[in-house]
Design a binder for these strands. Structure first.
Lengths: 171, 171
DNA sequence: CTGAACTTTCAGTAAATACTGAAAGTTTTG
DNA sequence: CAAAACTTTCAGTATTTACTGAAAGTTCAG
């Protein structure tokens, strides 16, 4: 594969990764920046990202900030160089744990809170509608709590190096 | 809890569930309709949904269609009644399996396809950038494949009745 | 076949989300 | 301290996504 083909393959990959990202809840540009950084051998500065992905400085800046907020990329600086560079976590299991931890915090915890507070009301025992509401919210709360717990166990960084092997055995 | 309080609690729950849904990739209305149906004792028709959630016929129709497409709700008809009613799957584990199956089909499979086709190109062994691209896409492909497999195992309906107990033990 | 009962579609519009680029802010250097 | 090098913010705008409601479509009873 010659260099020209490679550049094209890579660009195509990054573009497509963005499309996939947006079919999740992730914005296209953020997914593309992440893909770009995952495939970068060395840390990259904002200008390079702007040029390669054809996006504005503001857009690059805010998506990089968000990615750093998720813990998926790190800011890197070199002594004697005032620019900031960015570098992605490249280990997929570490990435998975990071994402799991953040999603738990941002999505699971609020859901659990709503479900628990809803299910802990007092209801009329003779009203089937109230009974259903009570039992459904309770069942959902328990489910989410279980999911939470599993993610917790799985996303502890110590175990995350064992887990891949365990799971492969499990096939 | 009197009936008025209950109505309010339920409405608040449905509204909030919608907010949570949209912090995932799910649209607010769809999440609300689903919540409404999960908490409904009997099958519900389009008009009731329109009134209760204050949405248009078109909106109700298309979100109901999509929910049915996900397999999260069923269409119900009664002999001698021309209207269609809708009813949600209420068992949370069955719901989970359904969602897992659909997400696999809609999100995991396309990602896997992209990753596999990208990682199966031939690369220059002496170019570190090409090497990184090759190894990253391969690692991602393997990860996604594993996730896929785990979901597959978990989302088989037979086992889904055992799994909750298993996981509770695991605490 | 006709019309009532119901469902679906879709052009137009509203709302939410993402993006731009210039201005303001910050840090460092000479 | 001034100016250069860089980063952040944010008002305005573009793009995407969701929603409305009326019209078209479908099914069925008489």
């Amino acid at each position: 594969m010659d260099d020209k083909d490679f550049k094209q393959t890579k660009a195509e990959f990054i573009a497509q990764w963005g499309v996939l990202g947006s079919s999740w809840g992730i914005n296209r540009t953020m997914a593309q920046i992440h893909a770009y950084l995952m495939m970068a051998v060395e840390p990259v500065d904002t200008n390079e990202i702007m040029q390669e992905l054809k996006i504005s400085r503001g857009n690059a800046n805010s998506n990089l900030r968000d990615l750093a907020g998720w813990g998926l990329i790190r800011r890197v600086t070199y002594p004697g160089d005032r620019k900031e560079y960015f570098e992605a976590e490249k280990d997929v299991w570490t990435m998975f744990c990071t994402i799991a931890r953040e999603r738990k915090r941002r999505e699971i915890d609020p859901a659990l809170q709503l479900l628990q507070s809803s299910s802990k009301q007092s209801f009329k025992k003779n009203d089937p509608e109230q009974q259903l509401f009570a039992s459904q919210t309770k069942a959902l709360a328990e489910f989410v709590q279980t999911a939470d717990l599993v993610l917790d166990k799985v996303a502890r960084s110590e175990e995350s190096k064992v887990l891949p092997f365990l799971i492969k055995r499990f096939r």
